[in-house]
Design a protein around this nucleic acid. Sequence first.
DNA 1: TTGAAAGCGATACCAG
DNA 2: CTGGTATCGCTTTCAA
Lengths: 346, 346
Amino acid sequence: MEFETVEKDARNAPTLASIAEKVGVSVNTVSRALRAPNTVRPELRRRINAAMEELNYVPNRLAGGLSSTRSDIVGVVVTSLYYSEFASIIDSLQSALLERDMQVMLANTRYDAAQELRLVRSLLSWRPAAVAIIGVDHAPKVVELLKASGIPIIEMWDTGGEVIDTAVGFDHTAVGAAQASQLIAGGYRRLAFLGSVRENDRRAQKRLKGLQSAAAMAGLPEIVTHTDQQGGSSELGERLAHELLERHPHIDAIACNSDVVAFGVLRALKKRGKRIPEEIGVIGFGDNEAAGCVSPALTTIRPDRETIGRLTAEAIFARINGAQPSTTLVEWKMMVRESAIRKETR
Amino acid sequence: MEFETVEKDARNAPTLASIAEKVGVSVNTVSRALRAPNTVRPELRRRINAAMEELNYVPNRLAGGLSSTRSDIVGVVVTSLYYSEFASIIDSLQSALLERDMQVMLANTRYDAAQELRLVRSLLSWRPAAVAIIGVDHAPKVVELLKASGIPIIEMWDTGGEVIDTAVGFDHTAVGAAQASQLIAGGYRRLAFLGSVRENDRRAQKRLKGLQSAAAMAGLPEIVTHTDQQGGSSELGERLAHELLERHPHIDAIACNSDVVAFGVLRALKKRGKRIPEEIGVIGFGDNEAAGCVSPALTTIRPDRETIGRLTAEAIFARINGAQPSTTLVEWKMMVRESAIRKETR
DNA sequence: TTGAAAGCGATACCAG
DNA sequence: CTGGTATCGCTTTCAA
């Protein structure tokens, strides 16, 4: 007689085979009990489930993914995790993916193109079911890799230009134009654009372009821009605002590239004794959770992040089920608050 | 003579075998060229790299993970993605993990215990190299699963109590006590605690406990608490503050469970004509990016999130390399601003 | 320095 | 409804 001692250490997690053996059926049956329960006799199914419960069985999805050549991972690439810029997109995207038991694998490029390439490559090595990525402007190599992967690619947040596959976002040029219109309607004419604009932040560049075109069309003087590569923060906004007003004291409205920067701008203006919105107007972008809590309350633009996340998940499901690529425009809203209305507009 | 036509469609990504064949070596050699380059003749290595480049080879880490029984995935479990609460932890954790080419797989429980169990199980099915999870209070089943996994488990943000393996965080009871001390030092005596406190948010409960003990020790009257299960927002803060003052008009200081809620409290108080900080003081928790931008600027507590993320990554590396479990206390700082100093303290 | 062969833990197809 | 068997793409001994 022989004894077989099986060392069941932690790295020796139960497998389908363990539980098949325990129940006295084939591996195959156990696998089916998991994926297609009604192809297995109820009583057997019960015993199998009991065994899984008892052994604390956790399926190995690496194995599952390998053999089925798809992985239920969704690669998510964002350009920053600062503040709440994309958190709520990730939040809603993830919670929608949960319905299909898909996991988010997160990558953050920090607006670095080289990093983006590296991260995309890295994500693809997990054979994700889809990739959701911020922006529609990527290095050629990134586009090539994503296209070659053959999986659904959802570009989020921005739209327009060359879309790889499917896009869910909005037109940032229009947002910039809306900022201009709002300021003009508020009674301002000498506009400036200010904020943190990274080299690779094409969205910010589009917003600036929209702002400039709208100002030009309204016959306003050229827009003064004062930006910095450094990450957006209220400290940056404060510094930039001081510098801006030193050089261009005649400015009467400031469009900011983000709300957090705008917060700093408000602080700087108050320190300089400028009355907002009477002497100078301020508009932001993003609708930070505090935008309505600063004083004066900040007029800004609120992209519907929750919807972007949800529609991205839906686009992924649709594409996986064979739907055609598409581009979906998502709403944004002008949040009119106190900081940008000089005169009563009626 | 025979022709072999290999359909190279998207689902047919190049494998180690493809490039082995192309170069005319064994699969094995290619694999080593990738993982241990200096065990391969330089010239051969060059040809292999060239072939990989040409075919746009992306390794299949599902296969790699399966055969090596470890996966370079780090499961990260947070309780919320609202605002900036944990974004910066994720940010720094991820960027530190990148050095070892490890990926973050993200899960969000939204303070739901059942969801946490499901998500942890799901993460474990990817055979992660480690799991980093917010909090030290988990359902018994969650603890059992995490322990049984045999991988490093890093509990972040909180410390104390039963730690599964390793913890990187701070003592929330002490934070609550510090809020009390700060308010007392600011000249206030009739304190209230207000905010969004989910059933499963043990950290908030600890902070409240700390606040209560410190108040009791200082001989202050019992702390009035007014909380809600609903998610934290400035709207919630505003509503709760109004309700609180209706019922307890004598309150002279409010400790808030989060800055965003505090923002709403400030708004409510101003609407009610209360002068801050003269008539009533307010203190927050979290140091939201706008805390210094509201008026009056919010006194609050700033946990060092960036360090928590980085130390978590280091703890993961250390544990993988055989180091013992440990608990690391991370600093937090009282950010003294205008909202909580009634009298000059010297 | 290189290669052959045996897994890793599932899934898929085809019989029975 | 159930079970065998071949894969999936890579890592890992062990020889050569």
